[in-house]
Simulated scan of single mutants.
Amino acid sequence: MNPKKRNIVIATLTAAALAGGTVAAFAAGDDETAAARTGVSGANVHGVTAAEAIAAALRHTPGTVVSAELDDDGGDAGAWGVDVVADDGAEYGVEVSAEGRVLDAQRDTEEESDSEDRAELAALKGAKFDARDAALAAAAEGAVTEVGGDDDETGAVVWGVETVKDEVTSEWTVALDTGKVTKVTAD
């Protein structure tokens, strides 16, 4: 096996192991083929997982992660945009590369928060399961491409998580207190 193919297999197996899932190993010559063979389309099979991107963002900018989203197109494909609220209430957008390096962290000075936003943030700060935990819990259902605070059908604050598996995008909720994963939809 050539070194490039071996590295693809190792990266895929490592990502699956870190996410707590299993995967069949296939040697692939390029990202599209690797994605097709592993059933992970729309996600960078060589990049860091949502949980790893969140951990990198928090090491750089401590606080509460309110969302993380994979950039799956354009020049930053494979990078993660992670929104962090620092303990002093300042909001930051942290960009984490597909290799797990923080590329940029910008303080968000434009967004005004209302009482609903403050209540959601308070729930997320006091949650037993944070964004990283939610990403890890939902990873059993597919490659996590997005995680963020959301309201469920009853109005309770939950983690909303999007996954991709076998070219199907699904949405899940993860309870803040129990970590229970519940399917919402599948495309």
Rank of each mutant, 00 (worst) to 15 (best):
M1Y: 06
P3S: 10
K5F: 10
R6A: 15
N7K: 15
N7R: 15
I8W: 14
V9A: 12
I10M: 15
A11N: 11
A17M: 12
L18N: 14
L18T: 14
G21P: 12
V23S: 04
A24P: 11
A25L: 02
F26C: 05
G29N: 10
G29Y: 13
D30I: 07
T33I: 01
R37D: 12
R37Y: 14
R37G: 12
T38C: 08
T38L: 06
T38Y: 07
G39S: 06
V40I: 13
V40K: 01
V40H: 02
G42D: 04
N44T: 15
T49D: 06
A50R: 04
A50E: 05
A53M: 07
I54E: 04
I54K: 02
A55K: 12
A55E: 15
A57L: 04
L58G: 09
H60E: 11
T61D: 13
T64F: 04
V65I: 03
V65M: 02
L70Y: 12
D71L: 11
D71V: 10
D73M: 12
D76L: 08
A77L: 05
G81F: 04
V82I: 07
D83W: 06
A86C: 05
D88F: 15
G89Y: 09
A90F: 15
E91L: 10
E91A: 14
E95Y: 08
V96Y: 02
S97W: 10
S97G: 12
G100H: 01
G100Y: 00
V102G: 00
R107Q: 14
R107W: 10
D108T: 08
T109I: 11
T109W: 11
E110K: 14
E110T: 10
E111A: 13
E111I: 13
E111D: 14
E111T: 14
E116D: 06
D117H: 11
A119S: 13
A122P: 01
A122C: 13
K128M: 07
K128Q: 09
F129K: 03
D130V: 01
A131H: 04
D133P: 01
A134C: 02
A137R: 02
A140Y: 04
V144M: 02
T145P: 00
V147T: 11
E153V: 11
G155R: 00
A156K: 09
E162K: 05
E162Q: 08
V164C: 05
D166G: 07
D166H: 07
E167T: 09
E167Y: 05
V168T: 08
T169G: 13
S170K: 10
E171I: 13
T173A: 03
V174R: 03
V174I: 09
A175G: 07
A175P: 06
A175H: 06
D177M: 09
D177S: 08
D177Q: 05
T178S: 03
K180E: 10
K183I: 01
T185V: 14
